[in-house]
């Protein structure tokens, strides 16, 4: 059964339709990631669910209850903001107590909840400090703690990792995933980073201009993108896009081949190309080539490349890994 259900939900700012009517169902305990480029409406969609924005049309249901016009505090949702939005004049303990006090809980049970949550997140040491005395990662934990302590129906995350440095980002990512397993709670997570989306999500919702391009598991999106936008958005380095004759030869307007699905074949190959740039990452290499008929092509291969800049090489796509799209960018199956 769907725990959160959007039914024709839309949002209009003035004359601009940010989100055209859209349907989506999110199951209990699911980790759903909204991903898309900036301006895709992913944050707006989250804020509609949170109740921080009023919907312009359609309805929103949580556990079957219509909460379209319910104020944000009464929806039973907790949100972790990009800036953490901790209350700077309160200690960590007071920050975490605030939502419970607002809900009118007794002091003893508030203290118990805080102690438990602080233990889970390993922030017991910081309980009497102010947010200004904490590092970015520690503030992040407190923000998550303030959300957990309320025991909400679902967690909403609005790009929570974008203010952290790369190392901290990947470790916090892991922690959020562990937390999801531990709590088994529904989580909706907004990011523009497809790596975060792929690694964390049970299901990904790819958004573009407020429209849902595709909903599916990371594997589905990677293997069977519904259109060119999803195909190019998911996967790094991005999918090679080939138009013109080379595409027409396969009966498509555009074809796409992921860099990891092209092989360098010294002699013939489907496409002849010249090596332009080589990025050697140690475990793998990205070979940037320019093909005579297919244009620029990136090849991803494990280990060192074995070719030099300026080499003439032949390239062949792996069988069964060529994605075909029609003139409108929709996948041909």
């Amino acid at each position: 059964m769907a725990q959160i259900k959007l039914d024709g939900t839309s949002k209009v700012f003035g004359d601009i339709t940010v989100i055209p009517p859209l349907d989506l169902e999110i199951g209990k305990g699911e980790f759903v990631v909204f991903v898309g480029p900036s301006g895709s409406g992913k944050s707006t969609l989250l804020r509609l669910i949170a109740g921080l924005e009023q919907v312009s049309g359609g309805r929103i249901y949580i556990e079957g209850r219509d909460i379209t016009t319910t104020p944000c505090g009464d929806r039973g949702l907790a949100m972790v903001f990009q800036s953490y939005a901790l209350y700077p004049h309160m200690t960590v303990r007071q920050n975490m107590a605030f939502p419970l006090e607002m809900a009118g809980e007794a002091k003893a049970s508030i203290n118990r909840s805080i102690e438990e949550t602080a233990h889970v997140l390993d922030i017991t040491r910081f309980l009497d400090r102010r947010p200004a005395q904490l590092s970015g990662g520690q503030r992040q934990r407190v923000a998550i703690g303030r959300a957990i302590v309320r025991n909400p129906t679902a967690f909403l995350f609005d790009e929570p990792l974008s203010n952290l440095d790369a190392a901290l980002r990947s470790s916090t990512r892991l922690e959020i995933m562990k937390l999801h397993q531990q709590l088994g709670a529904t989580m909706i997570y907004v990011t523009h980073d497809q790596v975060e989306a792929m690694t964390m999500a049970d299901r990904i919702v790819v958004l573009n201009h407020g429209k849902i391009e595709q909903v599916g598991t990371p594997q589905e999106l990677y293997e069977r993108p519904a259109n060119l936008f999803v195909a190019e958005f998911i996967g790094a380095p991005r999918m090679n896009r080939i138009e013109g004759e080379a595409a027409a030869a396969l009966g498509a307007g555009t074809i796409g081949v992921r860099p990891e699905h092209i092989r360098i074949v010294q002699e013939s190959g489907l496409w002849q190309a010249t090596v332009e740039v080589i990025e050697n990452l140690g475990a793998e290499s990205h070979v940037h080539t320019r093909s005579d008929v297919a244009g620029p092509l990136v090849v991803r291969m494990s280990g060192s490349p074995g070719v030099k800049i300026g080499d003439r090489i032949g390239l062949s796509p792996a069988d069964g890994f060529v994605h075909r799209f029609d003139r409108h960018g929709m996948a041909l199956r």
């Binding site: 949170a50 109740g51 921080l52 104020p71 944000c72 505090g73 009464d74 949702l77 907790a78 949100m79 903001f81 990009q82 800036s83 939005a85 901790l86 209350y87 700077p88 605030f98 939502p99 607002m102 809900a103 303030r146 309320r150």
Partner: peptide
């Protein structure tokens, strides 16, 4: 005062007076 702080408080069920 950042709007996210007000929004966080609103999510925490605090009304305008609180």
């Amino acid at each position: 005062i950042s709007s996210e702080i007000r929004e966080a408080a609103a999510m925490d069920k605090a009304g305008a007076w609180r």
